[in-house]
Write a protein that binds this DNA or RNA. Sequence first.
DNA 1: GACCAGGCACATC
DNA 2: GATGTGCATGGT
Length: 219
Amino acid sequence: MRMYEAMRGRFGVQGWWPSQAGAETAEGKTEICVGAILTQNTNWTNVERAIENLRRADSLSVEALDAMRPTKLAGLIRPAGYFNVKARRLKNFISAVVEAGGDIEAFLDRPIDELRAALLAVNGVGPETADSMILYAAGQPTFVIDAYTVRIFRRHGLLADGDNYATAKAMFEAALPTDAGLFNDYHAQVVATGKWFCRRRARCEGCPLERFAHDADGP
DNA sequence: GACCAGGCACATC
DNA sequence: GATGTGCATGGT
């Protein structure tokens, strides 16, 4: 918690989904899930352009996305890059929702383990994308790990060289109170810190976590 | 013109 | 089971 507080003190509450207006609606949840796929290996500003295209086409719904031709979808999400691959992945995800009844809110409102398994079964949805959907769209407490998380917390001695996605996730979930709001902003803080590192060429000076180097007692 | 951004699937060794 | 590669755009 001390490392989280240090980052939040430096960057402020990040306000990622679902704190944004409308995110509690079916359309909002659809948008978050779509965004989770579109942001794979992609800068967020490019994802926003793609989502805006979908919104203008009145297509941020399971029904509209299910009915849309793949080539049409690919054209709309073009700004997010990898548009052919991501159009296919979005279609795979939407198909899974449709096969489960077509109601995105019902689809997401399930026990975490069951939901996670259903998401991971979709071709194109890996651990990070699945956990992002569970945390930000379903609002359920699962900790999202990304490349920044592993890099930063390895550097501070809380993760070992051999740690992977699953062990890193387990470390955070064991050390922190099970709170979706906390997990939500924690991941956002890590991303903010990671971006800061990139700009600073990965040196510690001025980093919000600098004083925790090498002897932190937990995240 | 290189390099990177909130990954994943697939091939290959 | 670890490692490499394709996917493609827009900003720095």
